[in-house]
Design a protein around this nucleic acid. Structure first.
Length: 581
RNA sequence: GCACCAGUAGCUCAGCUGGAUAGAGCGCUGCCCUCCGAAGGCAGAGGUCGCAGGUUCGACUCCUGCCUGGUGUACCA
């Protein structure tokens, strides 16, 4: 079926000398309802026709006869405004939602293409901190968005599981007199404590740093005992990670961390040397990028050990070979921008033309309000831990109290509180543009009012509640989902209220919003869109009684379509679309 | 020094490939529950879109320069 824009373009082609494609591209959505549904700006034609834009608009308005769903064409301020029959608009929009259901907004733009997304990627031996949440949820959302656009998506957690840090862990483990038999009882908290203990001890005993480097060298050399400890530490970390990811409903297709690429180091170094890129400098091996206005890339330290970026180069090549990706996205904080500029430049210089598909997707800091009132990285509140699990539990606890007060009959209050808490935290991190530093305020994020996770979840809950009550009235169990039955019997002229019109217009934007989010590699447009739907839903529910009204059947249908669109939007950004709260 | 990012209402932020009168939330002033969830809705006050140039019929949006702030910058990851 043709879109409205395409229909309008057909009308304009004979009079403008533009192609249909150019016109579709130029058509915009008016900001004000009384300006119609679509607008064609006549300004670009002014030079070509040597006429003032308002005059062109007037001429075109006289030449074009409304046909089909287009009911009126009007010239205003140099724009040609098109008005669509509201019933037709409602039928197309809601019909598409009813037909596609949970697949609403799917497209084939990514058909046959593969995108690899690297996100979260914490360091092993440490617990997920609050600041890991943003990148994790951005990557999670991008994965879902790309899937909806028809891409094959490979989600990778590039664990930081190699480096001197693991020498430190081993040193402290042995220094405490611990043995392999103690690994059974080892927890992530205790591993974390070993790190802290190391930094404290190293202040008094600088020799510890050397011991850690030695331990890491033994690890790299393949010492069996050290490798065994390392593997045990990694297993403990993974188990805990998956527990937290479970709370967030985040998944990965691969956990290939840095260590996975160790045996590819010689080949990678050889490949770069073969391209004449490797240079000796102060006892280390580097790639000199001065003529590209970048600092040098260190591939190998004086002690012979490889570095982070060396493994990243190997990993990029491996991913290309393994997944044949068209695009490879690294969702990593903006502080790493130099690193990724270097990585991509090295891939280019090495002659890999696919470097063009490799892209850093940076995001800004999450700043916390300090006691002095300033903004800083780190702790969520003075004296309070910045571990992600503690933040989630804190949110859950606070919300549990509110649920007990506002909805004492709710079943599974703990589970609901967790989903609302996660929704609140996730929404507060995704509603802003990716690159903006976020000023996180605990109370605001968990606020039950305004532009918040609970606000958008609440709109979904109210829609579900009406559908549930509808079933209840008819003696059915569960909730009614009239959209599943299709558009048969629905009277699309029954939505004349401005609140209904506004809601339908908002629902029609879903596919465009998915596209916008993907082009920007940013879930933010989707989160903003969730607010728009929620606002539209609240407005409609407030002013248009559904159950018991003359238009009950038609309004229930609209409610169900709004529920689908909002539920899908929430799912795409990783906010749990709950049905009661 | 170089690199990346940000600067829009008192505060926290939206604003699609340049387009019609720059939008929300919080806070502030008021109003609306005999009515499907008030975790909601409605109204009001509040802006020289960091500064200066440039491109354009048209700039919050693009370009250049500056100012301010954040982050990063070879032997950590």
């Amino acid at each position: 079926m043709k879109t409205y824009k395409e229909e309008i373009a057909e009308l304009l082609v004979p009079h403008t000398g533009l192609t249909a494609q150019e016109i579709v591209w130029a058509i915009t959505l008016p900001q004000h309802l009384d300006h119609g549904d679509f607008a064609f700006p006549c300004f670009p034609l002014a030079k070509k026709l040597r006429k003032a834009p308002p005059a062109i608009a007037n001429d075109l308005a006289g030449l074009i006869k409304p046909v089909g769903a287009i009911t009126k064409v009007e010239a205003l301020n140099g724009y040609l405004n098109f008005f669509i029959d509201p019933a037709d608009f409602a039928k197309r929009t809601l019909g598409a939602i009813a037909l596609q259901g949970a697949a609403y907004g799917s497209s084939s733009r990514g058909a046959g293409k593969t995108v690899v997304i690297d996100y979260s990627s914490p360091n092993m031996g440490k617990e997920l901190a609050f600041h890991h949440l943003r990148g994790t949820m951005i990557g999670n959302s991008l994965g879902k968005l790309y899937k909806r656009a028809g891409y094959r998506v490979v989600r990778i957690n590039h664990l930081g599981d190699w480096g001197t840090s693991y020498g430190k862990l081993i040193v402290m483990f042995l220094r405490d007199g611990l043995k392999e038999s103690d690994l059974e009882a080892m927890t992530i908290e205790r591993l974390n404590a070993l790190y802290t203990a190391f930094s404290n001890a190293a202040k008094d005993d600088p020799a510890l740093e050397d011991q850690a480097r030695e331990a890491f060298q033994r690890l790299e050399a393949g010492d069996a005992r050290y490798r065994g400890l390392w593997q045990a530490f990694k297993d403990i970390t993974l188990k805990e990670l998956q527990r937290i990811y479970g709370f967030l409903d985040v998944e990965f297709d691969s956990y290939t961390g840095e260590a996975f690429f160790l045996d590819r180091m010689p080949a990678t170094m050889g490949l770069l040397a073969g391209k004449n890129l490797v240079k000796a400098s102060q006892g280390a091996e580097i790639v000199d990028l001065t003529e590209h206005n970048l600092p040098p890339v260190m591939l190998r330290k004086t002690d012979g050990a490889t570095l982070y970026i060396t493994r990243d180069i190997a990993a990029a090549i491996y991913r290309k070979e393994t997944y044949a990706f068209d695009r490879c996205l690294y969702v990593v904080d903006n502080g790493q921008s130099l690193h990724f500029q270097q990585l991509i430049k090295v891939l280019e210089l090495a002659g890999f033309d696919w470097y063009k598909g490799v892209e850093h997707v940076p995001f800004g800091l999450v700043l916390i309000k300090s006691e002095e009132g300033g903004w800083e990285k780190g702790k969520t509140r003075s004296g309070q831990s910045s571990l992600l699990k503690d933040v989630i539990e804190g949110a859950q606890e606070k919300i549990l109290g509110i649920i007990r007060e506002k909805n004492p009959e709710a079943t599974n209050k703990e589970g609901l509180a967790l989903q609302i808490g996660v929704g609140a935290l996730v929404f507060s991190e995704l509603k802003n543009r990716r690159l903006n530093d976020i000023r996180f305020e605990w109370d605001k994020a968990l606020s039950f009012e305004g532009d918040s996770g609970p606000y958008v979840q609440n709109a979904h809950v109210r829609l579900c509640s009406i559908l549930r009550k509808s079933a209840e009235r008819a003696g059915r169990t569960g909730a009614d989902h009239p959209a599943q039955a299709g558009v048969g019997g629905i009277d699309f002229t029954k939505f004349p209220e401005p609140q209904a019109q506004s809601l339908i217009r908002t629902l029609s934007l879903f596919p465009d919003k998915v596209g916008t989010a993907i082009e920007a590699n940013d879930p933010c447009p989707m989160a903003q869109y969730a607010l728009e739907i929620a606002e539209g839903a609240h407005g409609f529910i407030h002013s248009c009684r559904v159950l018991g009204s003359v238009e009950e059947k038609d309004r229930l249908f609209l409610i169900d379509c709004a529920r689908i669109a909002l539920g899908q939007t929430l799912d795409l950004i990783g906010v749990p679309p709950i049905e009661e709260m």
